[in-house]
C-alpha cells in the first residue's frame, strides 16, 4: 500500500502516464523514458534555446524576407515592410495573418517563456491568479504557427521564377526558421513540474 500526495504526481512527457515524482532522476514506469533529467539548473537548457531563438529573431527582422526581381529591378522587403505593403494594397486579412504569425506569435512566445522561466526560479511573478500551466499550454499551441511566413516564402520562391518576375527567398527566411525551431525546442525542454514549485 502506497499513499501519495496528488502534488507528487507527474505526467510523463512522452506517454502521458502518471508517475510518482521521486527525485530529479525519474524514469517513466510505462515507457521507460527519462522525465526531464537535469543536474543542477533545471531551466538551463530552456534558457539556452530561448536565447538562441531571440538572437536569431533579430536578423530575421532586419534582413529582407523576400526579394522581388521585377524586370531587372530588385526590391527586398523585411517582415514588417511586407505587412505594411500588404496593408496599403488593401489585403487586410492577409496582412493581419502575417502580422500575427510572424510578429505577435514569436514575441508572445518569447515573453511567455521568459515569464515562465523567471517565475519558476524567483518569487516575482509567482502570482496565484495566473494559471501558469495554461500559459505553457498556449505557448505549445501557438508555437508552430509562426512558420507560416517561412512556408509562404518557400512557396512563392518556388513558384514565381518567370522571365519577367522572380521571387527569391531572403536571408531572413533562414534566420526566422532557425528562430522558430529554437523556440519550439525551448518550449519542449521546459519542465512543467517546476511550475508547482519543486
Amino acid at each position: 500500500m502506497i499513499v501519495v500526495d496528488s502534488d507528487k504526481l507527474i505526467a510523463c512527457p512522452i506517454c502521458e502516464a502518471t508517475n510518482i515524482d521521486k527525485s530529479n532522476r525519474n524514469i517513466c514506469r510505462r515507457c521507460g523514458s527519462k522525465i526531464y533529467h537535469h543536474r543542477n539548473s533545471p531551466t538551463e537548457k530552456s534558457w539556452a534555446y530561448l536565447i538562441t531563438a531571440i538572437i536569431a529573431y533579430i536578423p530575421a527582422n532586419i534582413y529582407p524576407m523576400m526579394v522581388i526581381n521585377q524586370f531587372g529591378s530588385k526590391s527586398g522587403s523585411t517582415i514588417l515592410e511586407g505587412v505594411i505593403e500588404l496593408w496599403e494594397h488593401g489585403d487586410y486579412p492577409i496582412s493581419i495573418v502575417i502580422l500575427i504569425a510572424s510578429i505577435f506569435v514569436p514575441i508572445t512566445k518569447f515573453l511567455m517563456l521568459i515569464y515562465l522561466l523567471v517565475s519558476v526560479k524567483y518569487p516575482i511573478g509567482n502570482d496565484k491568479k495566473v494559471n501558469r500551466f495554461t500559459v505553457y499550454y498556449f505557448t505549445e499551441i501557438i508555437g508552430p504557427w509562426s512558420m507560416v511566413d517561412v512556408f509562404v516564402v518557400g512557396i512563392l520562391a518556388g513558384l514565381v521564377h518567370l522571365s519577367s518576375v522572380q521571387i527569391i527567398a531572403g536571408t531572413a527566411s533562414t534566420a526566422f526558421a532557425v528562430s522558430v525551431f529554437f523556440t519550439l525546442l525551448a518550449a519542449h525542454s521546459f519542465d512543467t513540474k517546476l511550475i508547482r514549485g519543486r
Binding site: 500500500m1 502506497i2 499513499v3 501519495v4 500526495d5 496528488s6 504526481l9 507527474i10 505526467a11 502521458e16 502516464a17 502518471t18 508517475n19 510518482i20 514506469r29 510505462r30 494559471n131 500551466f133 495554461t134 499550454y137 512543467t192 511550475i195 508547482r196
Partner: peptide
C-alpha cells in the same frame, strides 16, 4: 491518493492543459 502498487496510477490521469 491510496494505491495498491505503482501500476494503479493507470487509473489516474494528469490533464494536459491544467495539470
Amino acid at each position: 491518493i491510496e494505491l495498491e502498487d505503482e501500476n494503479d496510477l493507470d487509473h489516474y490521469i494528469i490533464c494536459h492543459k491544467c495539470h
